[in-house]
Write a protein that binds this DNA or RNA. Structure first.
Length: 307
DNA sequence: CAGCCGTGGTC
DNA sequence: TGACCAAGGCT
């Protein structure tokens, strides 16, 4: 859950998720839809599907025993260099360095690397720096976890002092050897990344339903795969709308009830919402019982759905 | 390697 | 308002 997502955002999701799936067996036995439902709103839904797949793999292939090393964790779906190092350093005391956004920023400043945050070269050099710090660590004893502590310390330093903007060098414990602090312009590191262009997308949502029964479809591809939303199609094509209504046996009498704006990664979505009065309500779904995307929630809220 | 995937907070 | 960014990983 913490991949690309802040602790404060994750916490309430984690609490609910962990209450429902207290162990790997419970997660493995759940349906993917149930897993997505408890994840819905957190974003990056592929993480949920991969976590679910990993749980099933652990139960089916390893008899429910969790991997005991970074290398073994790394083989699970959804577990990359960062996550395997985070788990193994905290749980097993393994001397593997984490490289996240914080560590990369701290490394760029401390070492004075003229690289942008999204450059693989920065990731590589931050990893080398981390490995070097790991080698100089004292041996673990008496239950101490120097490797895990170092990893958390670097990430916390990045989040609390060595922030992207207005870093607090005065309170930084490693200011003495820091190139960026010495320059007087610590904010100049890392270099500005090339900005990615946003694309505008115009959609049309078709909403029908009331109370506990609404017209919802599971998305198959593109964004939010596996999540439910009211059906949508590209805006600006009346023929497509008529065809869609005919296919789904919905009378094309509707009311335009408003507009919803939403951003998904590099897409800026502007969606008009049409509400239909008559539809085949026998196929209605309860929005509370299926995984909804944030976009789907916005559309339903506009249409009068109260969760 | 480059592109892709969500959402919410901050300034 | 918009740009940036966050405890990344997969294709």
């Amino acid at each position: 859950m913490l991949q690309q997502t802040r602790m404060e955002t994750v916490l309430p999701y984690f609490e609910r998720f962990h209450a429902r799936f207290p162990n790997v067996q419970a997660l493995a036995e759940a349906s993917e839809q149930e897993v997505l439902r408890l994840w819905s709103g957190l974003g990056y839904y592929r993480r949920a599907r991969m976590l679910h797949a990993a749980a099933r793999q652990v139960v089916e292939q390893f008899d429910g025993e969790l991997p005991q090393s970074a290398a073994a964790w790394r083989r699970l779906p959804g577990v990359g260099e960062y996550t395997s190092a985070a788990v193994a350093s905290q749980a097993f005391g393994e001397r593997v360095a984490v490289v996240d956004g914080n560590v990369k920023r701290v490394a760029a400043r401390y070492l004075g690397l003229a690289l942008a945050a999204d450059q693989p070269a920065l990731h590589r050099q931050a990893a080398e720096w981390g490995a070097e710090l790991m080698r100089d660590l004292p041996q673990a004893r008496g239950g101490s976890r120097p490797a895990g502590d170092l990893n958390q310390a670097l990430m916390f330093l990045g989040a609390s002092r060595c922030k992207p903007r207005q870093p607090d060098c005065a309170s930084c414990p490693i200011q003495a050897g820091c190139k960026a602090a010495a320059s007087g312009q610590p904010e100049a590191w890392p270099l500005p990344a090339k900005k990615k262009a946003m694309k505008d997308l115009h959609l049309l949502f078709l909403v029908a339903g009331e109370n506990r029964s609404w017209w919802l479809q599971a998305r198959q591809e593109g964004w939010n795969p596996g999540l439910f939303e009211p059906p949508s199609l590209p805006d600006g094509d009346p023929t497509a709308l008529r065809k869609f209504c005919r296919q789904h046996r919905v009378e094309s009498a509707y009311q335009e009830i408003g507009e919803v704006r939403h951003t998904i990664t590099h897409h800026r979505i502007r969606a008009r919402v049409l509400k239909f009065g008559s539809w085949d309500s026998s196929s209605g779904l309860d929005p509370a019982a299926v995984p909804l995307s944030a976009l789907g929630k916005k559309v339903l809220a506009l249409a009068g759905y109260r969760s």
